[in-house]
Write a protein that binds this DNA or RNA. Structure first.
Lengths: 97, 97
DNA sequence: ACAATAGGTCAATTTTTTTTGACTACCCTG
DNA sequence: CAGGGTAGTCAAAAAAAATTGACCTATTGT
């Protein structure tokens, strides 16, 4: 399908609007995320959806994936600077809810 | 389906993320909107989608519908105060795009 | 060695969103 | 009174997003 891209905020807005993204984002502000922990934290979600959401947030440059090579050897997702720049946007949205 | 509503920004975010909403919003900042004009302005859109988007934006309290009872007798959609409060949110989003 | 945990992928299905086309009804102009 | 503009609605179809269940690999703990 032909994407025409008129409004500059549209793409970002659409990317953020997936069913679990806002919640993932909110949790990422509190602490680094881990996949299975997230799966347990967000009731009603599922692997596939979380995997897709995390990948898209990563591709958008809002989260970054790090392999922690010590002790239990796991993966962490952290907010990037661009991600942190979105915090006030969420706060404003919450203020209007 | 059971909606659980965890993140407060989620509902608003989802409501704003429809395919044509950002563009409708952007145009509404410039001037009052009229249905058929919008249909011509937003290439690729269609009646049904615009009607749905306008209704949802209205229900959310971001736009208000007014019947202009003079001259050509038509309907206008204008940004409400709540709608105007969203302008800086869009600006921030555009800044990050 | 065995089972559990972590972090996923894939294909198929279901649900939601968007689009299409047909159809209304009310003015206004020539 | 015919044609055009305005502002829609409705049902059906198509497209996109979300969910399910099976499967997979690697690392740990016992």
């Amino acid at each position: 399908m032909e994407e025409v891209e008129t409004c500059p905020a549209q793409r970002l807005l659409k990317m953020l609007s997936g069913k679990w993204k806002a919640e993932i984002f909110r949790l990422s502000v509190e602490s680094p995320l881990r996949f299975n922990t997230l799966l347990r934290q967000i009731q009603g979600s599922n692997k596939q959806s979380l995997a897709t959401a995390l990948k898209e947030l990563e591709e958008e440059g809002l989260l970054e994936k790090t392999t922690i090579k010590l002790k239990p050897l796991h993966i962490e997702y952290n907010l990037t600077e661009k991600g942190k720049a979105l915090i006030p946007v969420f706060q404003q949205l919450e203020g209007l809810s």
